[in-house]
Design a protein around this nucleic acid. Structure first.
Lengths: 153, 153
DNA sequence: TTTATACTCTACCATGTCAATAGAGTTTAT
DNA sequence: ATAAACTCTATTGACATGGTAGAGTATAAA
């Protein structure tokens, strides 16, 4: 049930770009340092995001990346789908990456039935939350006192 | 965001065992044929499930597997965790498989914050639904007329 | 117009996981 | 005894993942 590192990096990069939205273009270098992401790898991911239209780039000495659309128009679901494929836990319940599974009768498959529920729950979150929301959460978290933060053990 | 085939097979096998609960032990062969699962692979998966205590086996000529506990006491979440690890989309929000991620400040990470929501949504479904529910769904689906079934395109 | 900075594109590689197969047991009802 | 069925450990091939490398191209600034 994992998200790949690739997807995680994409979201982290987008968060940075979201926080700089409206301002100057942000160089890969800066994102890479700020977020601890291997620069060369991030390069590829941002390029993917460019191809899919989430970000745009400016080349040359003062170059870098910026969001191609308003932060509130970029859902996390759309990003994940672009950089790593299906959001659904199994592909027989995926809308855009549907694939038949090996079960005897897909239409009457109880597992599939449950996974459809899981899928819609995931989508409920990932489809609703946008880069703008991500930024808002980041700002809120930054303001909170350290004592209010939870520690997972 | 995928579940592995291993996890899917485990659930499918458990469904079969759930439907036979109370009766005789079910041989791997039968589950394998009924569910289109490679027998040798299923062998390993059922063995895992035995080690974790979800099923028990009987050896010898009339051998096979049965659930080790009542169907309503086996949640899908517990099974997935046993055969493939974390349910959480990223390990920094996993309760039992926690691992630090590479982000600069985990406690104030907005991505993590969102993923916690996703994780709890997934758990809301997978943690609640048991093998018994799975069986109930299977029976209900079997009764439904074909026209009521949905087709994903 | 040179130069340094930053993006672009294609290729490559090392590792690991996944799904599956294989073989040599052990157990047990008949 | 024997055949059906589980048990255990290895191994394999394919593929994805995470990351590196190098040779470009564009552009702002000096």
């Amino acid at each position: 049930m994992k998200l790949s590192v690739r997807g995680e990096y994409a979201l982290r990069a987008l968060l940075v770009l979201g926080l700089h939205f409206g301002g100057e273009v942000v160089p890969i270098q800066m994102i890479s340092e700020e977020q601890n992401i291997p620069k060369r790898f991030l390069e590829q991911i941002l390029n993917d995001l460019k191809v899919t239209g989430a970000v745009e780039s400016k080349r040359g000495i003062a170059g870098g990346y910026r969001l191609a659309r308003a932060p509130q128009e970029i859902s996390l679901a759309s990003i994940i789908r672009h950089v790593e494929g299906a959001l659904a836990p199994i592909s027989c319940v995926s809308e855009r990456f549907y694939e038949k599974c090996s079960c005897p009768d897909e239409a009457r498959c109880a597992i599939r039935n449950v996974m459809k529920d899981v899928r819609s729950k995931i989508l409920e979150v990932m489809g609703t939350i946008t880069v703008a929301d991500l930024c808002a959460r980041a700002q809120k978290l930054a303001e909170e006192p350290a004592t209010a933060l939870d520690y997972v053990i």
